[in-house]
Design a protein around this nucleic acid. Sequence first.
DNA 1: CGCGGAAATC
DNA 2: GATTTCCGCG
Length: 629
Amino acid sequence: MKTSGDSGFAFPDWAYKPESSPGSRQIQLWHFILELLRKEEYHDVIAWQGDYGEFVIKDPDEVARLWGARKCKPQMNYDKLSRALRYYYNKRILHKTKGKRFTYKFNFNKLVLVNYPFIDMGSGRGVPQSAPPVPTGGTHFRFPPSTPSDVLSSSEELRSPGMFSSVARRMARGSVSDCSDGTSTNSELEEAVGADERGVGPDRAFRGLLPPRLPHDSLFRVFGGGPNPAGLPRPAPRVHPDSLSPFPVSPCLDPGGLLPPTLSPALSMTPTPHLSYTPSPSLSSPMMGSHFSFNPEDMKHYLQAHTQSVYNYHLSPRAFLHYPNIIIPQPHRPTLEKPATHHLHAPPLPLSHSLSQHSGGGEEQHQQHPSPFKFKLQPPPLGRKQREAGSSLASSSSQSSSFTGSGQNAGPPKIKVEPISDIESEEEVEVTDISEEDELNHNDEKHEGDIFTPTARHHHHQLNNHHRANGNGSSLSAPPHSNHDDDPDDDEEVFKTPATPSIGSGSLAFPLIGLKSEPGHAAPISPGGTRCIPLKLRFKRRWSEDQKMEADGERDEAEDKKVRAEREEEVEGKREEAGRRVGEVENGGGRAGGSVILGLMLPPPPTQRRASSELQRATAQLSLENTGC
DNA sequence: CGCGGAAATC
DNA sequence: GATTTCCGCG
């Protein structure tokens, strides 16, 4: 296990799982990358390096080959593979480490959120809400939680009707396998899980609800619950993949292909034990297949955790989740178990220090290469190039129409107008903020901190200009999207939460909502501050973009690219208001807390591990699938 | 090398 | 939807 000293970053186990990709059945490139990364065998071709989540492709051709093999695309080459990787930029799953060749970095957040938005919090057992009780052990596969968090104890059971479905379902469904059959090779686990879920029936789900997004930390904490051993369902790791083929690759292996027992380097690695626990996801992959249910208890825990996170991060009140009936205690201080830990990791490896690197590294926006970022903005509709033909119809437009213009086109079909209420609600909800903030934060801190690194700084953020549209140049800059979009964007992508218009439906429509209204909750935050953090934190930020942008100050574009095209107009104004000072968040004393949190979030590179073997095993089982080409 | 648009595929 | 393929640009 361990070993790997290399680098180590461990991602949470779940990150490695194929199930992670909801939509598609086939293995996704990022999963594949993760797989490679976790295997020592491939360390010569690809390995973790630098900061958490950062990896370098040592042998691009080989990686491409492997990927091609996996996908049965013999023609694959690094150029293509890299295109695919670039494709992740928009999704924010990955971003490029500037200045370092063949070096990319994962954004944990996204991965987490996307794939495992909720995890089973369960208190323990993961009983599906609707489902029949599953005794823990058996059915769901859960990783042992490791989080120390005591914060929430979960003890209760749940059963409430939960609300969400989609997410849950997704999670549950896990499915998996890639190519060949849809079914999985693996497993039983999955099956089991699936069964539960299925049994439940998607329908049950409560549609309408939005899935909440949690910050990782929250997730972890929450979910992390106690250590539980319970259950991994089957230990039996079959394992052994061939050394030859990476993982599952072997096409056709059906049954067995599982992961090697080795844990991902990431996980295991960590030699440093100093922390006993690692907050990080690694261990905690609580989420896995379970589901989260909103039962009061759960919610309570959830919210609590969330709240805490908010405090810790000094997030804006908006961030607070609201759940009817449940009051969340506000933590004055984080109770974290972890004391110090700023960064938890001890760098066993030279690499680890990457933190320090930031400056050097590259990433960061700051200098380094001041490279001008190019914003790529695309002008509206230009006729694209169509290499081919030219047929043209020009027109189109949908995109551009934004601004007033209406001229004729006014409307793209899809404009989204949102009722204010919605918007607000969303804003309120904006849970996103958190993530965003997180992102922001880290930016500060380190370069990319993607996910973790919550340091709050002041960003002055530049949201500013959202270029108003028009202007000529404007085209360049992205058109304003409403913040709403932004976040939602994330959300959307990630969660796809549909907002419910009505909002209130009562209660729970979604816990998230409501923040605004509750002053009580909201207020707290930091000490010095007068107000809590501006609600308006939200703004964009985007990962990489941020980074890039930070330097400049503008950013936004990113999402936009596509997005913008789609919707453009939106309300421009709002966002403007909103934004701005987000950064303010004071940290207040936060550092300490922050650290801790960080700890939680960060998957510390080297540390941790302690995960139970169970975890590992579990992981192993999950493993990937292969394709049979 | 890396970016990203566009179209094609699956 | 997620790439794969192709390609021009910096």
